[in-house]
Every structure is written in C-alpha cells, then in structure tokens.
Amino acid sequence: METGTEAGTSGPEWVGLPGGLLSLRRLLLALWTGLLAAVTAALAGVFLGPAWAAVGGCWLLGLAWGWVLLGRNWRSWRYAERADDLLISRGVLWREQTVVPYGRMQLVEVTSGPLERRFGLACVQLHTAAAASDARIPGLAPAEAERLRDRLTALGEARSAGL
C-alpha cells in the first residue's frame, strides 16, 4: 500500500515549537519544586526532627518526572499551514489535532505575558464563531507569531469574502 509521499503527494509541512517554551516551563518546574522541597524539609525538620528533613528530597523525584513529561509535551506541539486551513497537533497520550478553516476565523490574537516576553515568546490565539473551536499555538518567537497572525488574517479575509 502506498503512503502519501510514495504516491507523489506530500502531507502538510509541520512546524514544531522553538525551545524557549520548554526552557520557560522547565525553569518554572525547577523553581516550584525547589520551593516545595525547601518548605517540606523545613517543616519536617522542625516538627518531626532533623532526620526527617530529608523527606523534602522526595520533590526531586517529581522534578525528574516533570522534566521528562515537559519535554515530551513540548515535542508533541506542531502546526501546519495548508491551502485552506491551519492544522494544530498536540498531545502525548491523547493526540489532539485541530483543523481551523481560514474562512471561519474571526479574530487572530498575539499575546505575551511578562515571563513569555522575558524568554522572547508569544502565543497565537485563534477565535472562530464556535466557542469550542478556539485554538492556540504557544511558545512562538514574536516575529513568527506576528507573521502567522498577518498571514492568517489575510487568508481569513480572502476566504470569508468568497462566501
């Protein structure tokens, strides 16, 4: 049986997220687990005795587990621009693929919070008429987010004008 590439037709060209989002999420994970480990160790040391302060080290297992999971989640995010729609794919255990037709887009936003700006990141948020079909692409470079916003807006206007 032939696949799409063997038959001469190619599938969508997927684009992954840059590494800044992974760095930000791992930094936040390390900060929170470090804080929890310190608080747990201090409380256990004060109320149960100095030997129990080592219980705070259990949070290091959570840090290691979260570190791996964040990497897998980050690698699962990708998007592809096709002729008539935008594909967004994400998820490790439960794979989710969102298809947003250009003609159905009502609003394309680029947002960036304080931590995202510090790491040079932005998020593209797509709004459609159906509330459940809103989609987003997090962790993009601001220039790429603005390029994508402008392209999607132009394609959305062209497609909706043809309706």
Rank of each mutant, 00 (worst) to 15 (best):
R75Y: 01
G16V: 05
I137T: 00
S89R: 14
V110P: 08
G16M: 09
W52R: 02
W14V: 02
A7N: 06
G8I: 05
A141R: 11
S89K: 12
A38M: 11
G91C: 06
G4D: 04
C123T: 07
L140K: 06
L22Y: 11
L163D: 14
L126I: 12
A145W: 03
C58R: 01
V108H: 08
A51V: 05
Q106W: 08
G4N: 08
I137Y: 04
V124K: 07
N73P: 00
G4H: 09
L36W: 14
E2I: 11
E96T: 09
A42V: 01
P18E: 08
P142R: 12
L17G: 08
D85R: 13
G19V: 05
L31I: 15
L43I: 13
R136H: 15
F47D: 02
Y102N: 07
R95Q: 13
P18S: 08
W94D: 15
A44K: 03
N73D: 10
G71L: 13
L155C: 03
R82V: 06
L152S: 05
T5Q: 10
W14R: 03
S133K: 12
I88D: 02
G8C: 10
L22H: 07
A145Y: 04
S76M: 14
R25G: 10
Y79Q: 13
L93A: 14
A83H: 02
G62V: 07
G11M: 09
T111M: 00
W59Q: 05
